[in-house]
Design a protein around this nucleic acid. Structure first.
Lengths: 175, 175
DNA sequence: AGAATATATCTCAGTACTTAGATAATTGTA
DNA sequence: TACAATTATCTAAGTACTGAGATATATTCT
């Protein structure tokens, strides 16, 4: 948002009937536009809810994300985290610095590559994420409850497909 | 996110088999988590693409969004725009200020309510959005091309439903 | 009408990043 | 081996916002 986004700004639109003058290409385009609008608004609504939740623990969404990924995957190199949470190299340094200041994470050397550093949860970081993650997961469930489970299972693989295709178009991030 | 987000950080996950000890509630929760992960990653990938595109015109995603909504809806009160693009009140003042400095938008009085102001596209603002919007729409179509049209039509109403339900949970934004 | 409350925008300080480029270590190549 | 190119992180400056509170106007309630 994260990076900030060319979010579609209109209220959730109802589908308009295809008009006589619309070429097939324009029709396809308007389908895509519509999908993008509802995708972006869904994301924004859910992420706003979740952000408010993690803020109660004094964390930003990104900080939470880093704690979460370290909790679920174990120690990771900064660069590995960077790719997972999609921040810039400057961003990951800054974020880990802050987590270190808060005593939630520490840096450790990498034996094979002396340029690299691991980020590792401290005991208090582990305790924090362990304490707040379950409620967070419950909140996600509530936030997505507009769809029942079978509807959720229906769109998940399609969204995964969409995401993978879109990621393939993003030029590999350098900075 | 712009607003920044408690984005799920793991790589796009494959579905894990349900294990013997998983209660039904936990299974539902993991379905939701999975959906949230793919939703967030799809959004981030697409929005990154679009953001790079609008940056070429010297606009942030938010600025583009405001021009777009004014282009499609005509003059709007700042508060109306604020609700559509989901920024804070300080944010909308700041954004409109910047668009005014760039000569793309001007403020106009509201006759019925002297507290309020309209934002109106200037001729050069209209010209800009008219020039860049078509290519932007094409880019959206490309970005979402991981799904064919019928798949897109399949998930759009479901995502709309998800988004509306989630928005209903967001406490009405004050600031 | 007058007081209390609500609403629309603005102000200003603060924050969470991004960007560009620096530094150090590693890998590939002749 | 030495040189070049790549990679991993860090630094410093800049930007796009957010959040809290101020101001002016409008609305509601007595």
């Amino acid at each position: 948002m994260n990076r900030r986004v060319a979010t579609p700004k209109a209220a959730l639109p109802r589908k308009k009937p295809v008009e006589a003058g619309d070429s097939p290409a324009n029709v396809a385009q308007s389908d895509s536009l519509m999908l993008w609008i509802v995708l972006a608004r869904s994301f924004n609504a859910v992420s706003k809810l979740l952000e408010r939740d993690v803020a109660k623990s004094g964390l930003t969404g990104m900080e939470f994300g880093i704690l979460e990924v370290l909790y679920h995957k174990g120690p990771l190199l900064l660069g590995e985290i960077q790719r997972k949470v999609l921040v810039t190299s400057g961003g990951i340094t800054y974020l880990v610095d802050r987590l270190v200041e808060k005593g939630l994470v520490k840096r450790e050397e990498c034996e094979n590559d002396r340029r690299a550093r691991y980020a590792v949860l401290t005991p208090s970081g582990t305790a924090l994420i362990k304490r707040i993650f379950p409620a967070h997961a419950k909140l996600i469930e509530q936030a997505l409850a507009g769809l029942n489970i079978s509807e959720q299972r229906q769109i998940t693989p399609l969204l995964r497909q969409l995401g993978l295709a879109a990621e393939a178009l993003v030029p590999t991030s350098k900075s």
